[in-house]
Amino acid sequence: MDDLRTARRLSAAVLAVSNQLTVPEVLQTIVDTARELAAAEYAALGVPDDNGSFAQFLVSGVSADQQAAIGPLPRQHGFLAVMLREPEAQRLDDIRADPRFAWWPAAHPQLKAFLGVPVTSGDEILGALYLANKPGGFTDEDEELVRVLAAHAAIALTHARLYARNRELTIAEERARIAHDLHDAVAQRLFGLRLTAQAADLLIDRDPAAARARLGEVSTLAREAAEELHAAVLELRPARLEEDGLADTLCKQVRILDRASGPDGPRLVCLGGDIPDLPPAQQTVVLRVAQEALHNAIRHSGAATITVLLQGTTLEITDDGDGFDVGATIKAGRSLGLRSMRDRACSVRGHVTITSSPGGTRVRLEVPGAG
């Protein structure tokens, strides 16, 4: 029966990697499974950042109140750092007796028996699984089980990294396309301006009234060219949340996309209401989810109108397009954009809901406020 239970729990953890779960959800499943199967009191999975701390640190066996008492995410020190430098598993009867042990905060649980397994992809260490406090200590079998789970954590992290890189390439390609389109538009304006100015020069002596009319056209064409150039600069300039604020930054981007979509594209409208002073992380998530949803709607919805509403801590993007089958899209594995939005929302304890049917799609993001 124990072998059957182990097989079932391992199967559930493996399936989590291929199912449409966010990366944090997959990693949390792996951490919980590792703690259960190894009969440990505590487990954690850390993914380092480039600043000596952790981009993600998921725990199992520690309550929310305990986590709050422990404090912020740990730094890379002691055995947390050892596991990020050395590609070998570490198994100890008492972690406190090892000279590489450093310290832990006052509210941190007291650990004794310890098992650490690196999460690797090739020669690169992506993170580490940490387990502690098994009565009688950890065994070879425990280490083998945790190695299997660490391998699947590596798959989830590698997929996330590949998606991020592909998304960056897509954004770069889209920005290049917009820049090219706007450049062509400006070039056409300037060509028309030059021809009109030449016509005015020819008419100035024999038909002053017609020349004045042509000069009026020159003024209009120059203004339109300046507007196109301004749009190009805004579109290619990174969003400035800190300087402009969330509402202004979002609406500016909507106006830019509306201009870039051209007469044959959808009309984009930005609405706003009372916007609370959201923390920077929440503001960034709202902006990125909006960009992802707008990108999808412009390219795929066939909509005549796309509306962006930012009200309180809720963002809604709706269109009147063809709609799509959300479930079928996810099942077919064509849901990278949807998964990206869910990942971003999950990173700030937010929630994304997507509803769609013939006649339109709605993306709704809710994030916690500053309180």
Score class of each variant (00 low, 15 high):
residue 202 L to H: 10
residue 163 Y to G: 15
residue 49 D to P: 00
residue 355 T to Y: 13
residue 3 D to L: 13
residue 218 V to H: 10
residue 33 T to I: 02
residue 288 R to L: 06
residue 198 Q to L: 05
residue 231 A to N: 12
residue 47 V to R: 05
residue 55 A to T: 06
residue 133 N to F: 02
residue 192 G to N: 15
residue 59 V to W: 13
residue 286 V to Y: 00
residue 83 M to N: 05
residue 355 T to K: 12
residue 157 L to F: 00
residue 241 L to C: 00
residue 251 C to D: 08
residue 262 G to D: 00
residue 264 D to I: 08
residue 345 A to Y: 00
residue 318 T to Y: 11
residue 23 V to W: 00
residue 111 L to D: 09
residue 273 G to I: 09
residue 360 G to E: 02
residue 25 E to A: 13
residue 361 T to G: 01
residue 198 Q to G: 14
residue 145 L to H: 06
residue 206 R to F: 13
residue 6 T to M: 11
residue 368 P to H: 07
residue 28 Q to D: 06
residue 225 A to C: 01
residue 332 A to T: 04
residue 311 Q to L: 10
residue 251 C to M: 14
residue 26 V to E: 05
residue 20 Q to T: 10
residue 321 G to P: 01
residue 340 S to R: 14
residue 274 D to H: 11
residue 42 Y to T: 03
residue 6 T to S: 13
residue 53 S to G: 11
residue 329 T to D: 02
residue 138 F to A: 10
residue 286 V to I: 02
residue 192 G to E: 10
residue 304 A to W: 10
residue 197 A to I: 04
residue 367 V to W: 05
residue 135 P to H: 07
residue 208 P to L: 04
residue 63 S to A: 08
residue 341 M to R: 04
residue 202 L to V: 11
residue 234 L to C: 15
residue 357 S to D: 10
residue 340 S to T: 09
residue 197 A to Y: 07
residue 185 A to S: 08
residue 351 H to W: 14
residue 287 L to N: 05
residue 143 E to D: 08
residue 76 Q to W: 01
residue 212 R to D: 13
residue 204 I to G: 15
residue 322 D to V: 12
residue 357 S to A: 14
residue 69 A to N: 01
residue 104 W to V: 15
residue 230 H to S: 15
